[in-house]
């Protein structure tokens, strides 16, 4: 029987209250939202907080709103809510692609986007999605809010720039015209971590060439985006040839490790193949006629 070590529990009534509680209870206090990362760690005694600050009542952190050229997603938004949002699916199909393969439907009823990002698991899918979309993260602290790029949030496995006395409150996704995005994951079974996954966003210029492209990899040993692979696509027409080159560069940028999910060469092959697939899909969703320019079957 797995039971967490004893702790004290308190419910926050507002963001300000949560921050105060974190401050008062010091370094041994942890925030709990969905609890589907933290509670398993507590059961295994990998985490032994003395205080849990429950933020589930903070309705102000549970919203999805379009605000000009960005989408604002409250940190307490559940995976299931992101997946159910038509607005999210229309603006950022990559989010729906990823959410369909994050954990399982029951876990998605509880898990939150802020929790996923804050957990900073190296095999976590939404981090790649946010990297690719060049998301910004709003972090609240005693002295007010600060907004940082997603690339600044992650400091390594299970480590983020969100300090002990701070709270991730919102994710901001820039809305780009003529853009498309996609995510694809290879997993052994529903709910398992990725063997490997890739995500991409493609933004087309008015002349139909690629004005911006970003590619991210999950569980493949790459922090942030595959910059060279993205840069290789700039200014070219979407084509199988261009995607193959980007796939090759993304695979070269990856540094997978062998584990029970597969050997290095298999994972590197996946980096290449999944990059091509998500680019194909993202470009298609951006409105590009990729098939017309295809030269080979990839």
């Amino acid at each position: 029987m797995q039971v967490p070590a004893p702790f004290d529990y308190v419910r926050a009534t507002s963001v300000a209250d949560a921050l105060q509680l974190l401050d008062r209870h010091g370094p041994e206090a942890r925030v709990v939202a969905g609890g589907h990362s933290l509670l398993p760690m507590m059961k295994l005694r990998l985490a032994r907080p003395e205080w849990l600050v429950d933020i589930n009542d903070l309705a102000e952190l549970r919203s999805i709103t379009r605000d000009g050229d960005r989408l604002r997603v409250g940190a307490l938004t559940r995976h299931a809510e992101l997946l159910a949002s038509e607005l999210v699916g229309e603006l950022f199909p990559i989010v729906h692609d990823a959410e369909r393969v994050i954990a399982d439907p029951v876990v998605r009823n509880r898990g939150t986007i802020g929790g996923s990002l804050g957990q900073a698991d190296p095999a976590e899918d939404l981090t790649t999605v946010c990297d690719v979309l060049r998301a910004q993260v709003v972090i609240a602290g005693r002295d007010g809010e600060r907004v940082i790029g997603i690339e600044e949030l992650h400091r390594g496995p299970y480590e983020t720039a969100c300090e002990q006395t701070e709270l991730i409150t919102e994710l901001r996704l820039p809305i780009r015209p003529r853009s498309g995005s996609a995510y694809e994951k290879v997993e052994r079974r529903v709910g398992d971590w990725a063997v490997a996954a890739a995500g991409a966003q493609v933004v087309l210029g008015e002349d139909g060439t690629i004005a911006d492209a970003s590619i991210g990899l999950t569980a493949l040993g790459l922090e942030g985006c595959a910059v060279e692979a993205g840069a290789a696509l700039l200014g070219v027409h979407p084509s199988e040839e261009a995607f193959a080159e980007a796939g090759r560069l993304a695979a070269a940028a990856s540094s997978p490790v062998e584990d029970q999910r597969g050997p290095v060469d298999y994972k590197r092959h996946l980096a290449d193949e999944l990059t091509r697939r998500v680019l194909r899909s993202a470009a298609g969703r951006a409105g590009a006629d990729v098939l017309a320019t295809a030269v080979s079957g990839g």
């Binding site: 529990y9 419910r11 709990v32 609890g35 589907h36 509670l39 398993p40 849990l52 429950d54 589930n56 299931a80 439907p105 029951v106 876990v107 009823n109 509880r110």
Partner: peptide
């Protein structure tokens, strides 16, 4: 009304 895994939920969270 929503399915939840009760092994990964604290009783106090359902207060």
């Amino acid at each position: 009304g929503q399915p939840v895994k009760s092994c990964t939920t604290l009783a106090v969270m359902t207060d």
